[in-house]
Simulated assay, not measured.
Amino acid sequence: MSLICPICQAPLTSADNGLACANRHSFDRARQGYYNLLPVQHKKSLDPGDNAAMVEARRRFLDAGHYAPLARRLAELAAERAPHSWLDIGCGEGYYTGQLAAALPEAEGYALDISREAVKRSAKRHPQVTWLVASMARLPLESASLELIASVFSPIDWNEAARVLRTGGGVLRLGPARDHLLELREKLYDEVREYQDDKHLNDLPAGFSLAHSEQLSFRLPLDSRQAREDLLSMTPHGWRVNAERREQVLAEAFEVTVAVRYDWIVNTSTPAQD
């Protein structure tokens, strides 16, 4: 285990029914199987992240298989890298995490999200993964302890990625391509702004380089109102539109384009020598 204390950064070891560091900071293991390593002083709100309704909407939509091709290709790309240790950031309800765990059965896997509601549900589904309520901005993991970080529609703190990744490890990023959910956006907004799907590459710090990129797209019928409601609830678009426009979108079946890109961004830097 490569966990560190979120308060003092000392190594965490198993103690009773939880974790503890040498400075006597302790963290219980919740009955669902996760550890809460997000101290109250690091929270921006009382209960950060997705609420229960948003988590359930995402769970229904993903469990219905609508994004199965995305998860399948993500797992294939991760397996090609054959990491010994990996982390899924912004893991949500754990759909993609489960695919990664199945593809990497011998690797040490971690998953985290700032939403306790999300992690609480995901930990019960995939107990072979170490589940954490934690923040990407303060990863409770030792430096140079990971070989792969998976980011599925989640922001990346590159300073933390550089700290926890070993040389030769990298970030496997799954993000929206230019036409992702274009038809939905056209229904929601009078003017649809063009999305630049490679803008994240402008933020790469020294020591990181793009080693592989590919795209995947397909048409997705949204035949049921439940599917349309769930998709809207799990995207930022859902809370940006008024009730009238929302009802117009939900009223009739339509198809959307699912278009994503996968980037393998490698850490080529050499760790500093003491």
Rank of each mutant, 00 (worst) to 15 (best):
L222A: 06
H66D: 05
A10M: 12
G170W: 09
G238A: 03
Y189G: 06
N51K: 11
L141Y: 09
N17Q: 14
E108P: 10
I89K: 05
A272Q: 10
R240P: 09
H180S: 05
E255L: 01
V164F: 12
S269N: 07
D28P: 04
L19Y: 06
R121T: 11
A162L: 12
D230W: 15
L38F: 02
S14F: 11
R166P: 08
P83W: 04
A137M: 14
S45A: 13
R225S: 02
C91A: 15
G92S: 05
R261F: 10
Q248W: 00
H84P: 04
R173Q: 10
V119A: 02
E56W: 09
V260K: 13
G238Y: 02
F61M: 05
R72V: 12
R31S: 13
L146R: 13
H126I: 14
Y35C: 00
I89R: 02
G170R: 07
Y262L: 14
Q41H: 14
D157W: 09
S217Q: 10
H200Y: 03
R228I: 10
E183A: 08
E214M: 03
G169A: 00
N202Y: 12
R178C: 05
A206S: 14
C21F: 04
N159E: 14
G175L: 07
A30N: 09
A71E: 08
L104D: 13
E252Y: 04
D263T: 10
E80K: 14
D113M: 04
A137F: 15
P69S: 10
L250R: 03
K120S: 14
S151T: 02
L100Y: 04
D50Y: 04
A52I: 07
V133R: 01
S143T: 15
G207L: 12
L188F: 07
T257H: 08
E255F: 03
S209P: 09
V40Q: 15
A53N: 13
E191F: 10
R125P: 00
P69A: 09
R240F: 06
Q32Y: 10
C5S: 02
A150Q: 12
D263Q: 12
Q32W: 08
L250T: 04
R225F: 07
N202P: 09
D197L: 00
G169N: 04
F27Y: 15
S2F: 06
A177T: 06
W264A: 14
S115Y: 00
Q41K: 13
W86N: 01
M234F: 06
V256P: 03
H66I: 03
S14K: 13
R121V: 08
G109E: 07
D230S: 05
R73G: 02
D63H: 12
D190G: 15
C21W: 05
L132C: 11
P11A: 07
R219L: 07
E76G: 11
P48D: 03
S209G: 12
I7A: 10
S143E: 13
L112S: 08
E147I: 12
T130V: 13
D113L: 05
P236S: 08
V40R: 15
L216H: 00
R73V: 08
R73Q: 12
W86A: 02
P140E: 06
D230V: 02
S122C: 07
L100R: 09
W239T: 05
L74E: 01
A162N: 13
E142F: 11
A30V: 08
S269R: 07
N36H: 11
S26A: 15
A79N: 05
A150L: 10
E80M: 11
T235N: 03
R73K: 12
